[in-house]
Design a protein around this nucleic acid. Structure first.
Length: 196
DNA sequence: ACGGGGATCGGCT
DNA sequence: GCCGATCCCCGTA
């Protein structure tokens, strides 16, 4: 599953502010079928058009006047995407600190819209290809995948429907993961789940 | 043309 | 923890 493979990968953003590198520590999957929370669940609209396009591109949309960045990961006629929820700063610290208004480093990329703020991601990057080094791309395809026992699973955050789907993946115990601190570690009720 | 709702965040208690 | 801001999108008329 792509959402889990993206953990530990690096995301590079080259903007007019300069270049930033971050390590992805939290993702959520939104599925093609059987997932009412997925924007594509009710067919194509102007907003979710990117999800119906080729995989490996960005899907950027606004919620409550803030941006969220997804990577389209499947497109065999079946739209799906991975929301990038949180990351750890690797390079470009000065840029991210400025764009995030000088809050604590731990909070720069903690949450999908905070991440977009820190990396200057907005609607203009909707449908942008993220598989080659231009303005926004993912690297680390050749690196070792994160071990299963370092990855925790839970229901998705802020999603009111489909609570039975455990499609949030994150590096267990990472301080850069979003949400209250109790969500930073593997929830007890899901700790018995075998890795998928 | 209109109105309800949302994959959020930050401030306040 | 809870609540409100804020605005764009989408379903309905």
């Amino acid at each position: 599953m792509v959402a889990r493979e993206l953990l530990g990968k690096w995301l590079v953003r080259r903007s007019r502010h300069g270049e930033c590198v971050v390590e992805i520590v939290e993702t959520e999957a939104y599925l093609a079928t059987g997932d009412p929370a997925c924007h594509a669940a009710r067919g194509m609209t102007p907003r979710n058009k990117a999800m119906f396009g080729p995989p490996g591109r960005a899907y950027v949309y606004a919620i409550h006047s803030r941006w969220c960045f997804n990577i389209v990961c499947q497109s065999r006629g079946e739209p799906a995407a991975v929301l990038i929820r949180a990351a750890r700063p690797v390079a470009g610290h000065a840029i991210m600190a400025r764009l995030r208004g000088g809050c604590r480093e731990r909070d720069w990329l903690r949450g999908p819209s905070r991440l977009c703020q820190a990396l200057a991601i907005d609607k203009r990057l909707n449908r942008w290809p993220v598989d080659r080094p231009t303005r926004l791309w993912v690297v680390g395809g050749d690196q070792e995948p994160i071990a299963d026992d370092c990855i925790a699973v839970s229901p998705r955050i802020g999603v009111t429907s489909a609570h039975d789907l455990h499609l949030r993946f994150f590096l267990d115990g990472s301080p850069h993961v979003s949400g209250p601190r109790k969500w930073h570690t593997r929830p007890v009720e899901f700790s018995e789940r075998s890795p998928t």
